[in-house]
Amino acid sequence: MATKRTKEILALLDEHYGRDYRVSLNYNSPWELLVATMMSAQCTDERVNLVTKELFKKYKTVSDFAKADLKELEKDIHSVGFYHNKAKNIIATAKILLEKYNGEVPSKLEDLTSLAGVGRKTANVIRGNIFNDPSIVVDTHVKRISNRLGFTKETDPEKIEFELMKVLPKDHWILYNIQIITFGREICVARKPLCDKCFLNDICKSKDKKLS
């Protein structure tokens, strides 16, 4: 059960960022979100959205990605970084979706994480945003800020995921990640958190907190 302090933090996040569950990645289908999320690793959503705007016009189906030429796809997604592995995994995943799942994106965590290049983070993005299955996505922002807020002392993403499941009410599992990404980019940045502008300043327990 969420503590009074946790409820206060979540209420303030809701007040400032709303309760819109949609991720900032642009997509029109489950497989488009899957591809976009795979490309977003160590890359900004803004950059991914610029790439997918043309990418999804060129590759219109899962089959198109499965048939894609590796070198050509690498060129198409070059600007998102780590394009060699990302292109290879996208093609491999598309083939698995066709062979095992009739071209559909599966909903179960174990099925999603069996896809090439898909870990718990990507799987939970799909589960939460496509299937409305309450899940917690632990990215760099969630990891850093959850520690700063005192929600966890863990550093391993999977352990953080399970700790947050105990701390946060289910109706905020998906929402928390979406809100914290914005919060982490605008205020609680990694190197120099803008504590003087932070609406959580009064209840933050971070050792990084600026007192002046």
Rank of each mutant, 00 (worst) to 15 (best):
K53C: 06
K58W: 07
L109Y: 11
C43E: 05
A66F: 08
P30E: 04
G128F: 07
A116C: 01
I130L: 04
L194P: 07
Y21R: 15
D14K: 15
P106H: 04
S206F: 08
E158D: 15
Y59K: 10
V125Q: 09
R191D: 12
K209N: 01
L70T: 04
K166N: 11
F65K: 11
R120Y: 01
T61C: 14
K170R: 15
T44C: 07
K67P: 11
V125N: 10
T140V: 11
H84K: 15
V138A: 01
L13H: 01
N129R: 00
M1L: 10
R185I: 02
V118K: 02
P157V: 05
H172M: 01
N201E: 12
I187S: 10
L112H: 04
R47G: 04
L70K: 15
N177M: 00
K100N: 08
E154R: 06
V118D: 07
K71M: 14
T93W: 03
K71H: 12
E110K: 10
L13I: 06
L25C: 09
N85P: 08
K95Y: 09
C43I: 03
V51P: 03
L211K: 15
F199N: 01
A116N: 00
D111A: 11
V189I: 15
H172A: 10
L73D: 04
S79D: 04
K67N: 14
E54H: 12
G128K: 03
E8F: 11
Y17M: 10
V48A: 10
S40T: 14
K153Y: 02
D111W: 12
D69H: 02
C198L: 03
T152M: 01
F199T: 01
A68Y: 03
K210P: 06
T140N: 06
K197G: 04
K108H: 11
A123P: 00
L13M: 12
Y21Q: 14
K108Q: 14
M1I: 12
G184F: 02
R22V: 11
Y176V: 04
H16V: 13
R185F: 06
T61S: 15
L25D: 05
Y17W: 02
C188K: 07
A2W: 09
S24C: 13
N102W: 02
T44V: 10
H84Y: 13
V105D: 02
S40G: 12
G117F: 05
L70C: 03
Y176D: 00
E104D: 13
V51T: 06
P193N: 01
N85E: 10
R120S: 01
R144L: 07
Y27E: 05
R5L: 13
N201M: 11
I160H: 07
A94Q: 12
E74W: 09
I90L: 15
S40Y: 02
C195F: 00
L12W: 07
G150M: 00
E161P: 06
I180V: 10
H172R: 04
F162V: 14
A94C: 10
M39G: 12
D69Q: 08
V35D: 09
N102S: 13
E32V: 02
D171M: 05
S24K: 13
T182S: 15
I180L: 08
A116M: 03
K58S: 08
R19F: 09
V80M: 04
A123L: 03
T52D: 05
E186I: 05
G184I: 00
L97T: 07
E104P: 09
F151V: 03
K209R: 14
F183E: 08
I145L: 09
